[in-house]
């Protein structure tokens, strides 16, 4: 299959049919090859093919504010294979950019999607990274994203990982963030697991600088025999640092959920709070919807959709 056809298939699987809006930068990576790039001023993308994977460096130049979100499409059309991406992202001082990463594996039967990211967000820079996964119904995929993120002073970082369509398969997220003075960080994940899906999330952040702020939030819905382990680790070291951990998990059937929060404060002027809720669907919500004529399954679906669509 030639690159044009691969791009078309990747984009069709995420319901973007061939065309991005005018003036939108985008990068398509199929397997371990960059197959499409469209850039805007101030954004550079360098790639290097490695023995087992691909190295990509994304850089937004100092002071550049990219208006439209940059679309990244990672994926594989075949049923089997390995996609291994080492990504270095540098958002220079005073720059701002938002990325929407579409990770699509519509036919996956035995695929590994491995991402190792190193992200630096400069002084007073703004960076958002929304990662949307589209998987097939078979569940034959392992998703292993790791990231180390450094926020310099007054930087802002928002990331959201969403996997709501198709089967998760196996997922092992491990993000670590260090926040400088006056920086703001939000890491959120929304995942729906079923069958024998296995979900493991470790989100860790150190609020190192004074007045830094951080939020770690997870909304997970599990059905059948799916399982999830959520490790939220938030440590506040800077004076007036403020953090919050929020973990919501709904379990149905024989699913199993575990939440392990670690909150640590090592500065008397810092403050961290924590909330976690694990349980079944609220009976009053269920009964309300059933009293409007929805069967139990329809009612549960609506409640789960709501929980997973929460923006915290």
């Amino acid at each position: 299959m030639n690159d044009r056809k691969l791009i078309d298939e990747l984009l069709a699987s995420i319901s973007i049919h061939k065309h991005y809006p005018e003036g939108t930068a985008h990068v398509e990576i199929h397997g371990n090859r960059v197959i499409g790039v469209c850039l805007v001023d101030g954004l550079t993308v360098d790639s290097i093919e490695m023995k087992e994977g691909i190295g990509v460096t994304l850089r937004v130049a100092k002071g550049v504010k990219i208006k439209n979100p940059v679309h990244l499409c990672f994926g594989m059309i075949p049923e089997t294979g390995v996609q291994r991406i080492e990504m270095k992202t540098v958002i220079e001082d005073d720059a701002s950019v938002g990325f929407i990463a579409h990770c699509t594996f519509p036919n996956a039967r035995k695929i590994d999607h491995i991402m190792q990211a190193d992200i630096t967000i400069g002084n007073n820079a703004w960076y958002s990274y929304m990662e949307r996964h589209i998987h097939g119904d078979f569940g034959g995929i392992r998703v292993i994203p790791k990231a180390k993120v450094t926020l310099l002073e007054h930087a802002r970082f928002v990331t959201e990982f969403e996997l709501l369509k198709g089967r998760v398969g196996e997922i092992d997220i491990d993000y670590e963030t260090v926040c400088g003075a006056h920086s703001v960080m939000e890491m959120k994940s929304r995942i729906s697991g079923r069958g024998d899906d296995r979900i493991k999330i470790r989100e860790a952040a150190v609020l190192k600088g004074e007045y830094s702020k951080g939020l770690l939030a997870s909304n997970i819905a599990l059905k059948d025999h799916a399982s999830a382990e959520i490790y939220n680790d938030l440590r506040a070291e800077g004076a007036y640092a403020h953090g919050h951990v929020d973990c919501n998990e709904i379990v149905l059937g024989n699913a199993v959920a575990k939440a392990v929060p670690i909150v640590q404060v090592s500065n008397p002027k810092a403050h961290v709070t924590h909330e976690a809720a694990i349980g079944s669907v609220d009976s009053k919500q269920l009964q309300t919807l059933m009293s409007r004529g929805l069967c139990e399954e329809e009612a549960v679906d609506l409640i789960l959709q709501g929980m997973l669509s929460q923006k915290n």
């Binding site: 009293s291 004529g293 709501g306």
Partner: peptide, 22 residues
Amino acid sequence: IDKRAKLGITLAWQEPARFQGV
């Protein structure tokens, strides 16, 4: 409940449920 609702019976609760995200 849902079978009764399908027949046309429903209930308004004293304290209505909250639905996060719906």
